[in-house]
Design a protein around this nucleic acid. Structure first.
Length: 460
RNA sequence: UCCCCUGUAGCUCAGCCGGUAGAGCAGAUGGCUGUUAACCAUCUUGUCGGCAGUUCGAAUCUGUCCGGGGGAGCCA
C-alpha cells in the first residue's frame, strides 16, 4: 500500500493503487462523487473520482467528512484544475462511517479553543497534522544535530529526590495515603514510610544529572519530559513539556552561546528543508511572514549583548515601560519584546545577568555582581533557551548555596563533581514546545503538544 | 496568585440603552455530466452557561458560581 505523499510525487501513471485514509470532503454531482482523502502522510489529500453506479446509495450517504475508506483504482493525470493526479476509483470499502449528526469536525475552520476540547480528534485537521509532522521532524533533527557532533544521549531520571532544583514548583510523587499518611512522633508526615524512603518529585530539569555525565564523558544531552507545578495560565507555559538539555565539559559561556546559535540555525535549516509544505501552511493560515523570518534567522548568527548593555538600551527606549527597567531587575516580558522586536529586530542572546536573579549553580564573574548566564530571546515568545557556564569551584558553589538557603547535604552527589576532577562546563535548556511555537507561529503552547497538561487541564 | 475580556443552534458569530431569538456554515430533502472547503432550491435545530435578584416583562440590568480566552508574575 502506497501513501499519498509518494503518490503525489510519483511519475508513474495508469497504475493500480490501493489507498486507505479518511475523507476530508465530499462533492457530488448527478453521476459522480469526488472525495478528498487524507492519510496523514502529507498535508495534501488525493482526489478520488467514483461513478455513483459503483456504490450503493446507502454507502454513498455515509461517505461524509471523517469516514474511513479503502479505495482501489487507477492513478491518472487529472483532467481538471486543482491537482495534477487523481485516483479513478474502481471499488470502495467503507471501513468506518462518521455520522455527520455528531462527528464534531466539519469541512471548515474551527477555533483552537474548540479543537482543544476535542484533542483526541484534532490530529485529523490540517493544522494538527502539520504540527505532528513538524514536531516529529524537529525531534529527529535534535538527535541528529547532537549525534553528528559526538554528544551522548543520556536518559536522566523523571522522578527526583532533590527537593528543589532552582527551577520552580514541583509535583510531588508519593504512594502514601494522602488521607491518612504515615506520621512521625511529632505528627509530621513520615517520608521514611514513603515509596522511596524520602520525599520525591517529578523532575523540573535533567541538568544536574546531565552535568554528572558531562563531567565524565565530555558532551552529553538529554531530551525528555519535565514538569512544573506552577499555577500559571499563559500561552507559554505547560505543566508537562519537553526540554532539550545539552551539557558540555571543557566549555565556557562563549562556547555555550556558539552551540546554542548553531543548534537553532541547524534546526531551522532542517525544518525548512524537510517540511516546506507544512511550514507554508502555517505561513499562510497561522502567521504571515513566518517562512521569510525563519529563513533569515537560519542564516544569520544571533546578536549577543550583555545584560548591562540590554539595560542601557531599555533605559534609552523612546517610551515608558509599565515596569521601569533598572540594573538588577529581571527582564520583564515587555522588556524582552522591546529588545527582540524593536531594538535588535530578531533573536538575541543576553548574557551575564545579575547574580541575585539567577540559579545557584551558575558561575560567578569576577566583578562579584554577575554570573555567566545566557538566555536566547526570540520575538513574540521571549525566552526560548536558558543556559549558563556552571560554577566549578567547590567553595564558591557552597557559599552561594548557603546564601540561598539550600541544603548542601542534599546536593553532596552534585558537589562531588567539584571535589574530584572538576572542570569548566556549560550547558543550556531549550523548551521544545516554545521552539515549535516559534517555528509554526502558533500563539498558544497548548496547541503545539498533542495532549496538553496545564493547571486545571488534563482531559484525554 | 493578581488584572481584564467572554459564554446565544453542532461550529463561527450577530442581537444586549428590557417587550421572550437570527445569519453563515454544518445537517436533511431535491436538483446539477468533473467538482475543488462546488453550486442552486427548500427545510430542521436553541433550558441565550448555572443559580438568585430587580421588573408587569430579562439573552439584554445586578449579584454570585462555573467554563473559556487574554495579560502580569514565575519560567523553558
Amino acid at each position: 500500500m502506497k501513501r499519498i505523499k509518494e503518490l503525489l510525487q510519483t511519475e508513474e501513471r495508469d497504475i493500480e493503487i490501493e489507498l486507505k485514509g479518511w475523507i476530508r470532503t465530499k462533492r457530488d454531482s448527478k453521476d459522480l462523487i469526488f472525495l478528498e482523502i487524507n492519510d496523514g502522510s502529507t498535508l495534501k489529500g488525493l482526489q478520488i473520482i467514483l461513478d455513483k453506479k459503483l456504490i450503493s446509495e446507502e454507502i454513498q450517504h455515509d461517505l461524509g467528512t471523517g469516514a474511513s475508506v479503502s479505495v482501489s483504482g487507477i492513478l491518472v493525470d487529472s483532467p481538471a484544475k486543482g491537482q495534477s493526479v487523481e485516483l479513478q476509483g474502481k471499488s470502495l470499502i467503507l471501513l468506518g462511517n462518521a455520522p455527520a449528526m455528531d462527528y464534531p469536525l466539519q469541512k471548515k475552520k474551527h477555533s483552537f479553543e474548540f479543537l482543544r476540547e476535542i484533542a483526541h480528534l484534532r490530529p485529523r485537521t490540517n493544522t494538527f497534522g502539520a504540527l505532528a509532522r513538524v514536531r516529529n521532524a524537529l525531534s529527529f533533527a535534535i538527535h541528529q544535530f547532537f549525534q553528528q557532533r559526538g554528544f551522548l544521549y543520556i536518559h536522566t531520571p523523571i522522578i527526583t529526590g532533590s527537593d528543589a532544583e532552582g527551577a520552580g514548583q514541583m509535583f510531588q510523587v508519593t504512594t502514601l495515603d494522602i488521607n491518612a499518611p504515615a506520621r512521625d512522633s511529632n505528627g509530621k508526615v513520615n517520608y521514611n514510610e514513603d515509596f522511596f524512603g524520602k520525599k520525591a518529585h517529578l523532575t523540573v530539569s535533567g541538568q544536574l544529572q546531565a552535568e554528572n555525565y558531562a563531567c565524565a564523558l565530555g558532551n552529553v544531552y538529554t531530551f525528555g519530559p519535565t514538569f512544573r507545578a506552577e499555577n500559571s495560565k499563559t500561552t507559554r507555559h505547560l505543566a508537562e513539556f519537553w526540554m532539550v538539555e545539552p551539557e558540555m565539559a571543557f566549555c565556557d559561556l562563549d562556547g555555550d552561546q556558539d552551540m546554542a546559535d548553531d543548534f537553532i540555525n541547524y534546526l531551522l535549516n532542517y525544518i525548512l528543508k524537510h517540511c516546506p509544505e507544512d511550514l507554508e501552511f502555517f505561513n499562510q493560515w497561522i502567521l504571515k511572514g513566518t517562512m521569510e523570518n525563519l529563513q533569515s534567522v537560519a542564516e544569520t548568527p544571533f546578536e549577543r549583548i550583555s545584560y548591562t548593555q540590554a539595560m542601557k538600551a531599555l533605559e534609552k527606549a523612546p517610551f515608558d515601560f509599565q515596569f521601569k527597567p533598572h540594573w538588577g531587575c529581571d527582564l520583564q516580558t515587555e522588556h524582552e519584546r522591546y529588545l527582540t522586536e524593536q531594538w535588535i529586530k530578531g533573536p538575541v542572546i543576553v548574557s551575564d545577568y545579575p547574580r541575585e536573579i539567577k540559579a545557584f549553580y551558575m558561575k560567578q564573574n569576577e566583578d562579584g555582581k554577575t554570573v555567566r548566564a545566557m538566555d536566547v530571546l526570540v520575538p513574540r515568545l521571549g525566552e526560548i533557551i536558558g543556559g549558563s557556564q556552571r560554577e566549578e569551584d567547590l567553595d564558591k558553589l557552597k557559599l552561594r548555596m548557603n546564601q540561598m538557603d539550600l541544603d548542601t547535604q542534599e546536593y553532596n552527589w552534585y558537589l562531588d563533581l567539584r571535589r574530584y576532577g572538576t572542570v569548566p562546563h556549560a550547558g543550556f535548556g531549550l523548551g521544545f514546545e516554545r521552539l515549535i511555537q516559534y517555528v509554526t507561529g502558533l500563539q498558544n503552547i497548548r496547541d503545539v503538544i498533542p495532549f496538553p497538561r496545564a493547571v486545571g487541564t488534563i482531559k484525554f
